Amino acid sequence: MKLKDCIADFQISRYLHYMDNAATSLVPEPVIAAMNEYDRQYRANVGRGMHRLTRVATQKYQDAHDLVSNFIGGKEGTTVFTKNTTEAINMVAAGLDWQSGDRIVTTIFEHHSNLLPWLRLRQKGVELVVIRPDEAGIFDIEEFEEAITANTKLVAVSHASNVLGTVQPMREIADICKTQGAYFLVDGAQSVPHFPVDARRIGCDFLCFSGHKMLGPTGTGVLWMRDSLISPLILGGGTVEDVTTEFYSLTGGYQRFEGGTPNISGAIGLGQAVKYLENLGMDAIFRHEQELTERLLKGLPDIENITIYGPQDMKNRIGIVSFTIDRIHPHEIAYLLDERAAILVRSGDHCCIPLMKSLGLQNGTVRASFYMYNTQEEVDLLLETIEEIARIV
């Protein structure tokens, strides 16, 4: 399928200009159909019985795990389904054996989901080191070399910033972690949906991302682990091999970490979303988004009273552009974009309050974020409408 042909699969995009993909993506018709098929034709629990419906459901659920594993180059690791990136990261934070004096290294770029779990570990005597970028939002790899020491237990970094769109040098950071014996967690919520990501090539120990940002349903996410390094967060049905009143033994694979009845239709939908992305081609999706982003970045500086945040060139960035208009609140800008041109963007702090404070932004930014169904005509409409709004000042 060609990118231009996929637009018909997204019903909302026919009458709105949706540019809030960093928050959540739209869902194509084949994904909706796959979820409906489960509920209508073979709805049953998984791994719990031998009747025909449960056998079909169990196989489809397993297939979804395999599809996701292959999509991220993680076939040799363990792919656990979660509710979202937030739950995946919290499972690592709760599941590792922390000792007083352990060190965690992260960055000021992080979404709250990749910061708050580590802040809470200070209660156990864990030290948290936060690395800050330069004014353009670029990190110096030497900063990581200095911060990641022999007593660093974990390094947790977003592959791409959900505010500035900056892509971080994952392989270089992974090499430092390996030298120092630290685990490496990658928040891939903004990278996995938009360009090819291979967990093994990156060299990370944990890769966390959300299904709802990559054409899948809400309530779906992934924790990929190189090895089963953590203790399960939840114990219960499906997680054990044997139980007595005195002890229990856990099963292996992803089942060890997925206690209770999972989001079966959601998992099947996520598997279908992966197939949809693969059919379009991740390289093609990335190139398309790059073209849209470059068009926006070239047009915004021509508008008076505009400030763009993050790198303004196309090197190491994804299709996220944050900006402000002098003396107009970001929420008002977002409201006017919707009212005047049916353009839907995000405004506020984007769950990155420490980053906003470091940028001196009390009210946050306006953020436009693209996906495969956005068009150059929509970017032009966005620029025209922003220029109209900027004249209000």
Rank of each mutant, 00 (worst) to 15 (best):
K275F: 00
K275R: 09
K275D: 01
K275S: 01
Y276T: 06
Y276M: 06
Y276K: 02
Y276A: 02
Y276D: 02
Y276C: 07
Y276L: 03
L277T: 00
L277F: 00
L277D: 03
L277Q: 07
L277M: 07
E278Q: 09
E278D: 04
E278I: 05
E278P: 00
N279Q: 10
N279T: 06
N279D: 07
L280W: 00
L280V: 07
L280A: 07
L280N: 00
L280K: 06
L280D: 01
G281H: 02
G281T: 05
G281C: 05
G281W: 03
M282A: 00
M282C: 05
D283H: 02
D283Q: 09
D283A: 07
D283V: 05
A284H: 08
A284V: 06
A284N: 11
A284M: 04
A284I: 04
F286M: 04
F286S: 05
F286T: 02
F286P: 03
F286Y: 13
R287T: 07
H288E: 07
H288I: 05
H288S: 08
H288Y: 08
E289I: 07
E289W: 01
E289V: 05
E289P: 03
Q290P: 03
Q290N: 05
Q290D: 06
Q290G: 06
Q290M: 08
Q290Y: 04
Q290F: 03
E291S: 13
E291Q: 12
E291D: 11
E291H: 08
L292E: 01
L292A: 04
L292I: 04
L292K: 02
T293G: 09
T293Q: 11
T293C: 14
E294G: 15
E294F: 08
E294Q: 15
E294H: 13
E294K: 14
E294N: 15
R295P: 02
R295F: 03
R295G: 02
R295D: 04
L296Q: 11
L296K: 11
L296M: 14
L296N: 10
L296P: 11
L297W: 12
L297Q: 12
K298P: 08
K298D: 15
K298V: 11
G299W: 13
G299H: 09
G299A: 13
G299E: 12
L300Y: 10
L300E: 12
L300F: 10
P301W: 15
P301T: 14
P301K: 14
P301C: 15
P301E: 14
P301I: 15
P301A: 14
D302K: 15
D302I: 07
D302S: 13
D302L: 14
I303S: 12
I303Q: 10
I303C: 12
I303P: 12
I303G: 14
I303R: 14
E304P: 15
E304V: 12
N305C: 13
N305H: 15
I306S: 13
I306T: 13
I306G: 13
I306E: 13
T307K: 15
T307A: 12
T307N: 12
T307V: 10
T307G: 09
T307S: 12
I308K: 12
I308W: 10
I308V: 14
Y309C: 07
Y309G: 06
Y309M: 08
Y309P: 04
Y309E: 08
Y309K: 02
G310P: 05
P311T: 05
P311F: 04
Q312A: 05
Q312P: 06
Q312F: 03
Q312S: 06
D313P: 00
D313A: 00
D313E: 00
M314A: 03
M314P: 00
M314T: 01
M314E: 00
